[in-house]
């Protein structure tokens, strides 16, 4: 009798435990497969997470909009509408507290800080996880590339966006994915 209740309780717990990663997978898959792609100009740096491993933090050029509204509070939930500039890179066209009602793509995110009429937001895809040996090399490779490149092509992140959800698909440096760029640099230095 008692075991029966325990089993029921456990089944509910187990379903919840499985539901969280499955929901994460489903949302990300849907966004990745059916979302619109945006390219965000970025600068990478490399930190570590105790559970999820090494990643490079991306510092985006497009993360601020000018606004007269001064009432923004840190960590406040906001929606950033996206657009593209003349070169095809992503820009933030508007930040609001309500979901955009028109068809424009947007990402759900948080307010970073407000300073001198510029509202800075924390874009919700600033972590790009990499294999542990490559994350640090990626950072140094980018720094060197940034200094030495003759024909500079900006590094950018490819982000799929759908219904406010955003999935960071890849980071491109000198026209190729970050991972391949790191491998290429390794080949060169041999």
């Amino acid at each position: 009798m008692k075991t029966k209740y325990l089993i029921i309780a456990f089944v509910i717990t187990a379903l919840l435990q499985a539901a969280v990663p499955l929901k994460m997978i489903y949302d990300s898959e849907m966004t990745e497969k059916h979302g619109t792609e945006y390219r965000f100009r970025t600068t990478p740096i490399d930190p570590t997470d105790p559970f999820r491993g090494k990643y490079i933090t991306l510092d985006f050029e497009a993360e601020a909009v000018t606004t007269q509204d001064t009432t923004w509070v840190r960590n406040e939930k906001v929606y950033a509408s996206l657009g593209k500039d003349s070169l095809g890179f992503a820009t933030i066209t508007n930040v609001s507290r309500e979901k955009p009602s028109d068809k424009t793509d947007y990402v759900a995110t948080k307010v970073g800080y407000y300073y001198g009429r510029d509202l800075h937001i924390d874009l919700p895809f600033e972590r790009f996880y990499m294999e542990e040996s490559k994350a640090y090399e990626a950072e140094t490779a980018y720094r060197e590339y940034n200094l030495a490149a003759v024909k500079f092509m900006p590094a950018y992140a490819i982000v799929a966006v759908k219904d406010g959800n955003a999935v960071l698909k890849n980071v491109i440096i000198d026209g190729i994915p970050m991972k391949e760029y790191v491998l290429k640099q390794r080949e060169k230095s041999k």
Binding site: A9, P21, I25, F51, G53, Y55, R127
Partner: peptide, 30 residues
């Protein structure tokens, strides 16, 4: 913890360590 961590890693899902621990503790409590 490891399943959430790896899924986050695969899809580059952000979030700080504290929010990650929060979900983990809640799911482990029962």
């Amino acid at each position: 913890g490891s399943s959430m961590a790896l899924v986050a890693q695969i899809y580059n899902i952000p979030g700080d360590v504290s929010s990650f621990l929060f979900s983990w503790i809640i799911l482990g409590m029962p």
